[in-house]
């Protein structure tokens, strides 16, 4: 996993001026507002001055929020593309090349968008901006889980997901950033990525922490991809994969059910979609078992589509 982070850092730095320009814009907008108010209140009254401080603080927060929403959206788009790419695997011949390509894409997401999110969030309470970033992270988790499953047939753990999101940045880059103890904790149990940087320039770790909730919701989305993969594999005449997939999905669904409704509304919603996906896969397996021997392979998919609730139109969880 030899990533050259510093090169990416340089790329980020070059965006500095545009960020400043954005700041300048909001400043001029404020001036406009102030002109209108002048008529009513004295410019220099204590109240107005206090509110100017508030204005500044709120704007800073909103700007950061906006930037994070945008980054999160970029992560979503790129993760989706990676997932589509992975669905293009049709046989053993192209398997390796597609996986390689997907890995590169994931690395690119990590080193551009997610690194920027990490930079935006350093020294901040990540929960303040949770709503802005969590859709992106869920989609990202879905993509890495899917990649990992295709590669190794296993569920990637939260620690592994987090381990990939620890970045090494030059320590002196900005003094604003405060090392908080939690961050360094994450570093200690991370994958040995840290070896890449050379020891004479001081580096420090910067990480974004994927919340357990985002991870689990990402798993729920991931089952949707498994369902698609199952139907695709039947289309390709593969009669073995569906049975492996159905077992795995059943396990996941069992675990989801075990937690019940406690995690919240979004969880419950995703669980019901998950149930539908599972039903489709189970139907497909049933079909394969019962009629697999009778049907010619190329007709199997049509037969499965004809089952009640067995449509191959895939439900999309991401609204």
């Amino acid at each position: 996993m030899g990533r050259d982070y510093r090169q990416k850092d340089d790329g980020y730095k070059s965006k500095g001026p545009s960020k400043r320009a954005q700041h300048g814009d909001s400043w001029s907008a404020n001036r406009k507002v102030q002109k209108g108010v002048k008529l009513i209140a004295e410019e220099n009254s204590e109240v107005v001055q206090a509110f100017r401080v508030f204005q500044n603080e709120l704007d800073t927060k909103h700007d950061k929020h906006e930037r994070l929403v945008k980054l999160s959206r970029d992560v979503t788009i790129e993760s989706k593309r990676t997932i589509f790419l992975l669905h293009r695997i049709t046989g053993d011949e192209d398997r390796e090349t597609v996986i390689k390509e997907a890995e590169d894409k994931i690395k690119l997401i990590q080193s551009t968008h997610i690194l920027q999110i990490a930079k935006e969030l350093q020294g901040q309470d990540p929960f303040l901006f949770q709503r802005a970033i969590s859709p992106g992270f869920q989609e990202y988790v879905e993509a890495v889980l899917f990649l990992c499953y295709i590669k190794e047939k296993k569920l990637m753990t939260l620690e592994e997901v987090r381990g990939q999101l620890v970045f090494q940045v030059p320590a002196g880059e900005d003094s604003l950033a405060k090392e908080d103890s939690r961050k360094s904790d994450v570093v200690s149990d991370a994958t040995p990525d840290g070896e890449v940087h050379d020891p004479d320039s001081p580096m420090r770790a910067l990480s974004v922490s994927v919340s357990p909730m985002d991870y689990v919701l990402g798993i729920a989305d991931f089952t949707g991809e498994l369902m698609r993969m199952c139907i695709n594999s039947i289309g390709n005449g593969d009669t073995e994969t569906p049975f492996v997939l159905v077992t795995f999905m059943q396990q996941l669904y069992d675990c989801f059910q075990l937690l019940g409704n406690t995690p919240g509304r979004e969880y419950t919603r995703k669980m019901s979609v998950m149930r539908q996906s599972l039903a489709k896969v189970e139907n497909a397996c049933y079909m394969l078992r019962v009629r697999g021997s009778e049907f010619p392979k190329h007709m199997l998919l049509d037969a499965i589509s004809a089952l009640p609730g067995g449509s191959t139109d895939t439900m999309d969880l991401d609204t």
Partner: peptide, 27 residues
């Protein structure tokens, strides 16, 4: 694939028990 199967089972259940613990603490 049978050999990796049991591996997957344990990783799934440990993942979820960790999450369950997280939820309990949270509550």
């Amino acid at each position: 694939m049978a050999d990796t199967g049991s591996d997957a089972v344990s990783s799934v259940s440990s993942t979820f028990s960790a999450f369950n613990e997280y939820l309990t603490n949270d509550q």
